[in-house]
Design a protein around this nucleic acid. Structure first.
Lengths: 97, 97
DNA sequence: TTATGATATTATATATTTATAAATTAATAA
DNA sequence: TTATTAATTTATAAATATATAATATCATAA
């Protein structure tokens, strides 16, 4: 039964989509509301090319999606499981007590 | 306020500890009960050297810990947040419906 | 049309991760 | 002691991820 290995591979790939400082900051922004690329760049300080690559990776993993309004692309989190994991990370790393 | 970046870096590092097929399989085994290295190798098919390296990385990220009984090392999950994330991954990738 | 704004793509250098083989340590039984 | 079992460490090659600069696309306003 190699099913478990295939699922582990999918899950690992999904986690790799999240496992980067810049992408977590992007998702942190998007967890509040959808944002366009320029707004994401301003909010995070990530360079344009790098932002585009990170967003592409997040799209590949079905973590985010986007809608177009004229020439502006608005990105948002498309996978509800991401919110769960962000919540766990918040508990683990962002809480004082 | 660069705090958020530092926390994103810590969180990303933690997620990187999880974001690997072999390590997820190891954690899947350990989520049930503690296991020694040989048992983990048998259960997963991961080679000895590779297992040792993966366990070392999991230790570095404080994801697992171990106890010694004579010359056998028993590993177990030491971070409760890991169970939460494993639960989310199970929902996302291992459920049929 | 043409210029501009918003974003993506390509190319490439660097860094990090992973896989594999060989050697080493540490504990214990003989 | 010595041999053996259980596991780690080291070295290194191959694969993947990241950062950066340059170029391209595409929609729209002038």
């Amino acid at each position: 039964m190699k099913e478990i290995k295939e699922k582990a591979e999918l899950a690992a790939s999904f986690l790799k989509g999240l496992a980067n400082k810049d992408r977590l900051m992007i998702l942190c922004e998007l967890s509040q509301e959808e944002k366009n690329v320029t707004a994401l760049i301003e909010a995070t300080g990530i360079t344009q090319t790098s932002m585009s690559q990170h967003l592409n990776k997040l799209k590949d993993e079905d973590i985010v999606t986007y809608r177009r309004d004229h020439r502006t692309l608005y990105y948002s989190i498309s996978n509800p499981h991401v919110f769960e994991i962000m919540g766990t990370l918040y508990e683990a790393f962002c809480k004082e007590d």
